[in-house]
Structures are given as C-alpha cells and as structure tokens.
C-alpha cells in the first residue's frame, strides 16, 4: 500500500500524527519518495516567490492635517480658563443662597460671612428682580429671585461638569 496524497500533504504541513509510519514507508519506497519530492518542489517554488515593491504609497490618504494639532490645545486651554472663571463667578453667586437655604447645618462662623455676602448680593438681586418684576407681579419677588438664582447656578454647575468631562477625554 502506497501513501495517499493526503498523507503526503499532511506530512509536509506537519499536520499528521502518523509521522513515524509515513517516514518508514518513504525510506523503503522510491515511488512515494519521488511523489514527496515533487510536492516539496511546489513548496520550494512558492517560498521562492520574491516580495514585490509598491509603486505608490498607500499611507498617503492617512496623513495628519498639519494645522490642527497645533491649534487644538490652545483653543482648549482658552475654553478651560473661560469656564473656570464662569464657574468661580457661579460659585460666588451661589454661596450665600446655599447658606441661606440650609441653615440647619449651623456653620456659624462661615454662615455669618455668607450672610454678609448674601445681604450684599440680595440687595443687588433686589434691583435685578425689580427689573424683571413688572412682567410677573403676582409672584413674591424674594422667592422668585432665589429660584432664579438656584436655576442659574444649577445650569452653570451642569455646564461645568459636562464640559469638564468632555474636555478631559480629549486632552487625555
């Protein structure tokens, strides 16, 4: 019994577990040895095929746009600075109202400072709310100014946190 084509192929592909039997047969059978060598020649021919050079650069469509990387960080830092300033302002505006809204916490020394600030801001807000009053005469103005400011502060904080997260991803 001669070796099958499958056996010879699997032998050369090192995908057989009958290596020993195949080798034993090959050593005693010229015909199968010749068939193996023909097959080995094909392997050698395929191996001999040289690599061919490209005539164009396939990386060309993937070049970075040169102006963008230099501009982007500057733009980002400007945004960050602006947002920090706005956030700080928001916190200053918010502080007295937070102190007023949660007197239960009894931050005696701090809250006295806050209350001082609050009176200053409240007087400013009085003028501000008086400015808006004519359109909404039925709502008590002190309550409305608190709600207004809380809403403004809330939006500022959301804006800060949201943009902060976005920018952190980009910088990283």
């Amino acid at each position: 019994m001669h070796l099958t084509d499958e056996q010879l192929n699997e032998y050369l592909d090192e995908a057989t577990n009958e290596r020993a039997q195949i080798e034993a047969h090959l050593s005693s059978c010229d015909e199968c040895a010749a068939r193996l060598s023909t097959l080995q020649n094909v392997f050698a021919e395929l191996d001999s095929l040289p690599e061919v050079a490209l005539t164009r650069n396939l990386a060309a469509p993937f070049t970075p746009r040169p102006s963008l990387p230099a501009q982007l960080p500057k733009f980002l830092t400007l945004t960050v600075t602006l947002q920090a300033a706005v956030a700080l302002t928001a916190i200053i505006i918010a502080a007295p109202f937070i102190a007023q809204l949660i007197p239960v916490l009894e931050l005696s020394s701090l809250s006295s400072v806050f209350i001082q600030l609050q009176t200053q801001w409240a007087s400013w807000l009085d003028t501000l709310s008086q400015f808006q009053m004519p359109t909404l005469p039925t709502i008590p103005f002190e309550l409305s100014s608190i709600y207004l400011m809380s809403a403004v502060v809330g939006v500022f904080m959301l804006w800060l946190v949201g943009n902060g997260l976005l920018l952190r991803n980009q910088i990283k």
Partner: peptide, 17 residues
C-alpha cells in the same frame, strides 16, 4: 489618521504582496 498612516507604512508591502 497619522498614527494609522504609520501602521500602513509598516504593513503596506506585506498587504500588497
């Protein structure tokens, strides 16, 4: 895209062949 371009430079001959 530039980083991907670098990868292309590394493998383009391979892939072309």
């Amino acid at each position: 895209a530039g980083a991907f371009g670098e990868l292309v430079t590394r493998y383009q001959v391979n892939v072309f062949n």
